[in-house]
Amino acid sequence: MRRFELAALCLAVPAAFAAAWGIDPGLQFLLVEALVLFLMAQMWNLAAGYAGQVSFGQQLFVGAGAYALFAIANATAVPVWVVLAVVPVLVGLAAIPLGMVMFHLKHAYFAIGMWVVAEIAQQLVLITPWLGGTGGLTLRPNGEPMQGFPEQLVLGLALFGSVALVVGLRVFLRTPMGLATLAMRDNPAAAEGAGVDIRRLHLILFALTAAGTALAGAMYYTTTLYTSPLDAFQVNWIVATMFIVVIGGIGTLTGPAIGTVLMITLREVMTAYGFSGDQYWIVMGLISIVTLLFLPRGLWPALQAVLSRPRATT
């Protein structure tokens, strides 16, 4: 691990504590949402931007994370924070057989196929009484109302988790498996010809991104204390995720951060000026089109190109 990565991790700890106890609850909730979106975006970026697994079904893992958390926490005496740590492991493991089936589909078929799986999961939850059906579930650990201020702890976790994820991804990309991932991004057939077990690598990345997305979903719904199928499995999760990654710069680690800031800022500014409802989605759509027309690789790669351009000497 390089020195500034270690420094970033060390700085993230006091920053997480400060954010958890020094910020007013409204801003805390907003930050939780931003960081959760960032985590999801970074996961989709790893899957789509690096591994080439473009999927329109990321919301499957958001919902799976939320429902796994609520179902386990409500039915057992295990503390919510422990369940929160177990959920990504469970969802990640469940993603392995799913991946083995879904990887028979290629490219657009895989992307749409994942969306279909997410819709099926939503429909199944809607008709399952012990998961609350259409009414959804309230977080009641061991049957009791949730104590304390979950957004404080979740904010601390999400802030530290975001920094740890970026550092972790940087370290990962320097390992042999990370190099194989980067090579797969450039030329999957050649990577296999270099001895990389592409199928296994795809499954590992699929499981990892499923786990990370489930954790982000579980953290988000811990702060809302309530989840429903129409909310947890909604398409908006993947729409926001794709906006953040594609606008920010797919296949880069900095792009999703820029995309997240842009999206949250835009929404907050627009609501502050009285644009109600979902009008910001229209503006976001326009921004997407303009960006993709003029900066098809996203904002961060374009910014990098400008910054690294040699200046004229005269």
Binding site: L179, L182, A183, R185, D186, A190, A191, G193, A194, V196
Partner: peptide
Amino acid sequence: QTFARLTLRENALLP
């Protein structure tokens, strides 16, 4: 069949 966005050293390191 080279990896365009990797360095030559990384291209050789992968195999």
